[in-house]
């Protein structure tokens, strides 16, 4: 009988429990490695911007100085490319999807104050070091110029006066160079 082919399945259905679960009363278990949304260990981020450049949707932005990382979750397609590219491995995919919302907008993650303070200190130290190194270099140059001037002074008085003027100009330039050094260190 061609018409009764479905009967065994229909009978089975009478006695089997439902195939579907009563979500949300019974919560859904996501499998391991589910690509739900991106999470960041913001304190490990070095602000290199690799994730920003590789994202196919252009949804990310980072600010290295302020220590922030932002994502518009509605633009993210959860492709996981940024996770693959991040050199510090501080991005990962977590379970649970982005819930619907009324409007789009970026979520910004900021580094904790301690980490920011530590980084700021490091930056200042580096800047100070750079400035000190520069000063040392300049002093060495000044000394050398003075020595040359002294050597030339033996040759002629007119040349000596010229050399002294040059040394003065170098000294006047030094404070400016000192100011520029922190910016170079950032």
């Amino acid at each position: 009988m061609g018409i009764l082919k479905y009967a065994p399945q229909a009978l089975k259905n009478l006695f089997l429990p439902p195939v579907t679960t009563s979500y949300p009363a019974v919560p859904f278990e996501y499998p391991e490695g589910s690509r739900g949304h991106i999470e960041i260990d913001i304190d490990d981020c070095i602000g290199c911007g690799m994730c920003v450049r590789c994202c196919p949707c252009g949804t990310l932005s980072v600010d290295r100085i302020k220590g922030t990382w932002s994502i518009d979750r509605f633009d993210c397609i959860a492709c996981g490319f940024c996770v693959e590219k991040c050199p510090k491995k501080c991005l990962h995919m977590a379970k649970g999807y982005q819930t619907p919302g009324g409007e789009k907008g970026s979520v910004t993650y900021t580094k904790s104050p301690e980490v920011l303070a530590a980084e700021e200190q490091k930056r200042q130290e580096a800047a100070a070091k750079a400035a000190a190194a520069k000063k040392a270099r300049e002093e060495a140059a000044k000394k050398k110029a003075a020595e040359e001037a002294a050597a030339q002074a033996a040759g002629g008085a007119g040349a000596a006066a010229q050399a002294a003027g040059g040394a003065g100009a170098a000294a006047a330039g030094a404070p400016d160079a000192g100011k520029a050094a922190p910016a170079g260190g950032v």
Binding site: P31, G33, R35, I77, G80
Partner: peptide, 29 residues
């Protein structure tokens, strides 16, 4: 309609395997 439900019930198992291995159900990436 019944046959439609049954086919999709079976399909769900395949989707579960895909989700387990890739982390997504349709766009594997």
């Amino acid at each position: 309609e019944n046959l439609f439900y049954q086919a999709w019930r079976i399909r769900e198992k395949v989707l579960d395997m895909i989700e387990m291995t890739t982390g997504a159900r349709l766009i594997f990436s």
